[in-house]
C-alpha cells in the first residue's frame, strides 16, 4: 500500500535519512522504533510531503501505486493518508469540535462528517464532553485523543502516528495503544512510530528499527521483541 524506497532526506547540508526503505501492506500495523535523532519524525514528514527526498536520486514514495514524493502535503492527504504528528499539534485557539471539523475537510470525508463525528465521540467520550472548549485547555492525554480523533475524521485508509504516547502517563499510554489496535481492526492501516516498544511491538504485524538514519533491523513485531539488540537498546534488559 505504502512503499518508501531508498529515500535520502536531509535539512540543508545535514543528511538525516540514508536510503531508508519501509513498506506497509493493506490492513497492517507497522511500527518504526529507534532512538531520538534517528530520523523517525523525518521519515513521517517526508511521507506527508513536509520534507522532500534529495534530488535527483533521493528515492521514491508511492501510495497505492501513485507517486507521493512530488505532491504538496494537501494533495498527499487527499489520497487517504492522515497524520497524528509528534506533540499532537492540535489547533490551540480552536474549539475541540472545530478541530475535529478541520479533520474532515478532504473530499472523501466531507460527506460522511456527521457519521464519523459520532464514531469519534463514541471512541473518545471525553472529546464530546469538551466539544466547546478551546483545544489549548485540554490536558496532554486529551490533546493526543483529539489529534487521533481529528485524523480519523479524514476517513483515512492509512494512519500515520508519530509518538502518540510521548509524555503520557503509563495508563494513558496503554489506552492509546489499545485505541490504535481497535482502529486497525476497523480496517485502517497503521504506520506507528513509538518508543514504548513494550506496547507497540506485540500489536505490530511488522516493525523496523531505525538507527542513525538507516534501517538496521526488520521483522515481525513479536520477533523483534525477542531480538537481543532490541531488548538491550529499547527495553534495557
Amino acid at each position: 500500500m505504502l512503499e518508501v524506497e531508498a529515500i535520502h532526506v536531509g535539512y540543508g547540508p545535514l543528511q538525516v535519512l540514508w536510503g531508508v526503505s519501509v513498506g506497509v501492506k493493506e490492513g497492517e500495523v507497522v511500527s518504526v522504533i529507534g532512538p531520538n535523532g534517528a530520523g523517525k519524525t523525518t521519515l513521517i514528514k517526508t511521507i506527508v510531503g513536509l520534507l522532500r527526498p534529495r534530488a535527483p536520486d533521493g528515492g521514491r514514495i508511492t501510495f497505492r501505486g501513485r507517486r507521493l514524493d512530488r505532491l504538496a502535503p494537501e494533495e498527499i492527504v487527499r489520497q487517504g493518508i492522515a497524520v497524528v504528528p509528534e506533540g499532537a499539534r492540535v489547533f490551540p485557539e480552536m474549539s475541540v469540535l472545530d478541530n475535529l471539523r478541520m479533520g474532515a475537510l478532504v473530499p472523501r470525508a466531507r460527506g460522511r462528517r456527521a457519521q464519523t463525528l459520532a464514531e469519534v465521540f463514541a471512541l473518545f467520550p471525553r472529546l464530546e464532553e469538551r466539544a466547546g472548549q478551546p483545544a489549548r485547555t485540554l490536558s496532554g492525554g486529551e490533546r493526543q485523543m483529539l489529534a487521533v480523533g481529528r485524523a480519523l475524521m479524514a476517513c483515512p485508509a492509512l494512519l500515520l502516528l508519530d509518538e502518540p504516547s510521548l509524555g503520557l502517563q503509563p495508563t494513558l499510554v496503554k489506552a492509546i495503544m489499545e485505541t490504535i489496535r481497535r482502529i486497525n481492526e476497523r480496517g485502517i492501516t497503521v504506520l506507528l512510530i513509538e518508543q514504548n516498544v513494550h506496547f507497540s511491538l506485540p500489536m505490530s504485524h511488522r516493525a523496523y528499527v531505525l538507527e542513525h538514519g538507516r534501517i538496521v533491523l526488520e521483522g515481525p513485531g513479536a520477533e523483534l521483541l525477542r531480538d537481543p539488540h532490541v531488548r538491550v537498546s529499547y527495553l534495557g534488559i
Binding site: L50, V77, R78, R89, M102, V106, A154
Partner: peptide, 10 residues
C-alpha cells in the same frame, strides 16, 4: 495557528 498542520488537513 499552524499552517503546516492545516496543510495536512488538506
Amino acid at each position: 495557528q499552524d499552517w503546516e498542520m492545516a496543510s495536512l488537513m488538506g
